[in-house]
Amino acid sequence: MIRLAQFFTAFSVLLSWIGPGFALSEVEMQQMLRTVDDRQRNGGDYKALCYIETKEKGKSDVVYDAVVYRRDIDDKLMILFLRPKTEQGKGYLRIDKNLWMYDPTVGKWERRTERERIGGTDSRRADFDESRLAEEYTPTYGGAEKLGKFGVHKIMLTAKDGVDVAFPVVHLWLDQTSGNVLKRQEFALSGRLMRTAYYPKWTKLFSESKNAEVWYPQEIRIYDEVEKNNSTVVLIREVDLRSLDANMFTKAWLESKSR
């Protein structure tokens, strides 16, 4: 699921255009982003069990057990909360440009924006959705760096005109060896750093519909850079790539789950 990329192309291909110390051309960077996107995309449906934990200074921790559904062909996304019991049945549904939130305790659908903090955590819709980096952003190269013991390429992304994304400027640190995103920083239009996210564990799973592997990060750690003491951890515990019911991505389906 989440954004980090995977090559399903051969490892050797990867090496041919990632050479440590060499600046990447725009074409190469575009290719890298496409690879990141492609790796996480499944041709068919996608379902993942997630755990989200948010620490906020001076407040009780917020935790969620949720399931994420994706139908990448139609760009549809649905998030349904399973636990805790006050949040059960609450869900998000993205169709076209509409991001809906359903709250069964309120019995209402509400329109939300791209900047919606999912369930009040520091995660965004995009963290759970299909990766569309190549489509949404224009890259520039930021140099080769070390991140822990890994050699990484830093790539700076700017949102393309007219694309509605939560953050207009994004910096990525891509593992030179695997091409995976290891670190991601997101900035507001003003240039202010808003979030830093880490992707320390990547897993791949063979997809029959795609006839290739689908990659997903097992763990995402998000640090709020505005409220410095707040942080969110997302665990992607299990992924299921079997087809989902045709009528699932509708308000009626989401409502029915808690009725």
Binding site: K47, L49, V67, L80, L82, R83, K85, T86, E87, Q88, G89, K90, P104, T105, S178, N180, K201, W202, T203, K204, L205, F206, Q218, E238, V239, D240, R242, K257, S258, R259
Partner: peptide, 21 residues
């Protein structure tokens, strides 16, 4: 980078989504 081999899961097992209401 690890491999995973899930056979799928049932997210609604043991979950009662009407609890919140």
């Amino acid at each position: 980078v690890s491999d995973s081999a899930t056979t799928g899961f049932d997210e609604f097992k043991n979950v009662d989504l009407q609890g919140a209401q």
